[in-house]
C-alpha cells in the first residue's frame, strides 16, 4: 500500500522561467523510510512543500494517505509532520512553550504522545526554559523534530535535517529515524549527502527537478555497471592531471585519496592504466577494479543528463 503517491507533478517559478520540478512521479509505501537525494536546487524543498499542502503544483496530482494535496489540505495538515530545512519555530518561545503550543494546535497534549519524543526530548529537557532563538543548531534540530512528532503523524517529512551536521551527529540522527520507522511512521527525508542513501529503504536521486533514478540502493547500483577503477599514486596532483589527458578515459574524479577512473571501452583497465601511468613516470601505483558507489552513479547520471 502506498502512503504517498506523486503523479506528474510540475512546479515552476517566476512565470514559468524557473523549473523546480519537471513531471515528477513516484510512490512511497506505508512504513517506508524514503530518501530524496540531491544537491541544492534539485527541487527537494518544492516537492516537500507541495506534499505538505503549503504550495500548489502547476499541474499533476499528489496524494498523502489517500488524500488529495490540493482538495484535502486541512485533513492532510492534521496527519503529517513537517520539519522544514530552515528553522521555523517561535524564536521567542521557550523549548517547553513551543512543544506545548504545537500539541495544543493539534488538539493533543505533550503527555499523551510523550513516548514518541521521549528519547529525543530528554536530550534538550535540561534547557526547557531556554528560548528557541537562543539554542545551538543541534538543539534546534531536536526541538523541531519533537514538534513535528508531537501529534503522532502518519507521515513525517524531514527537509535536509542533517545539512551542516558533523558525521557523528549525522549517524546518531539516522539511528533515531530507524527507531521512529520501527514505530510504523512513514518517513520521507531529503539530503544532499549521498552516503546517507544506504540508510534508506529506497531512494530517489533528484537533480534539476528530475528524478534520475529511483529504487533501493542495491538495485540502483546493480543497474549501472561501470568499467571503474580506483587509482592511487605517490604524486596525487600530477595523477589527477595525467588521467585527464587520454581519450580512453571517460571520466576521472577524486574520491578521498584515490581517483575513480571510468574507461571508455571494455579494455582491461588495470593493465592499461598501469602501462599508461608508468610511462608517465608515476610511482607507488595502486590500481583496482571497483563497484561504483552512489556518488559514482550520481556523477554518471549527471553527465548523461547534461
Amino acid at each position: 500500500m502506498s502512503t504517498v503517491r506523486v503523479e506528474n507533478i510540475k512546479k515552476t517559478y517566476d512565470k514559468g522561467t524557473v523549473i523546480a520540478l519537471e513531471e515528477v512521479s513516484f510512490e512511497v509505501k506505508s512504513g517506508e523510510l524514503f530518501g530524496l537525494i540531491g544537491p541544492d536546487g534539485a527541487g527537494k524543498t518544492s516537492l516537500f512543500r507541495i506534499l505538505t499542502t503549503l504550495l500548489l503544483p502547476d499541474s499533476g496530482h499528489a496524494e498523502v494517505a489517500g488524500l488529495d494535496v490540493v482538495k484535502d489540505l486541512w485533513q492532510i495538515r492534521r496527519i503529517v509532520g513537517y520539519m522544514p530545512g530552515k528553522f521555523s519555530l517561535y524564536q521567542d518561545l521557550s523549548i517547553e512553550e513551543n512543544l506545548n503550543f504545537f500539541a495544543t494546535v493539534f488538539n493533543t497534549t505533550v503527555q499523551k504522545n510523550f513516548h514518541l519524543i521521549e528519547e529525543i526530548y530528554v536530550q534538550i529537557e535540561p534547557f526547557k526554559k531556554r528560548l528557541a532563538g537562543k539554542l545551538s543548531g543541534g538543539m534546534k534540530q531536536k526541538l523541531a523534530l519533537c514538534c513535528a512528532l508531537i501529534h503522532e503523524p502518519k507521515v513525517l517529512f524531514l527537509d535536509e535535517p542533517t545539512t551542516g551536521v558533523d558525521p557523528v551527529s549525522r549517524k546518531e540522527f539516522w539511528d533515531m529515524l530507524d527507531r521512529l520507522k520501527a514505530r510504523g511512521i512513514t518517513i520521507i527525508v531529503s539530503t544532499p549527502y549521498m552516503d546517507e542513501a544506504s540508510r534508506c529503504d529506497r531512494i530517489a536521486l533528484l537533480q534539476k527537478g528530475k528524478i534520475l533514478e529511483l529504487d533501493s540502493l542495491e538495485k540502483i547500483i546493480a543497474r549501472h555497471p561501470q568499467n571503474l577503477y580506483a587509482v592511487d599514486a605517490d604524486n596525487a596532483y600530477q595523477l589527477m592531471k595525467d588521467l585527464r589527458l587520454t581519450p580512453e578515459i571517460e571520466s576521472t574524479f577524486a574520491f578521498g585519496e584515490e581517483q575513480h577512473v571510468t574507461l571508455q571501452s571494455l579494455l582491461d583497465g588495470e593493465q592499461f592504466l598501469h602501462q599508461y601511468l608508468s610511462n608517465l613516470g608515476h610511482t607507488g601505483l595502486k590500481i583496482r577494479k571497483i563497484t561504483p558507489n552512489i556518488e559514482d552513479i550520481f556523477i554518471k547520471l549527471m553527465l548523461e543528463n547534461q
Partner: peptide, 19 residues
C-alpha cells in the same frame, strides 16, 4: 564549509580551484 549542498561534480571542481 564551502561545498555544503553542492552536487558531486561541482564539489570536485571546487577542489580543483583550491588546489
Amino acid at each position: 564549509e564551502p561545498t555544503g549542498g553542492v552536487d558531486p561534480i561541482t564539489r570536485r571542481q571546487f577542489w580543483d580551484m583550491i588546489y
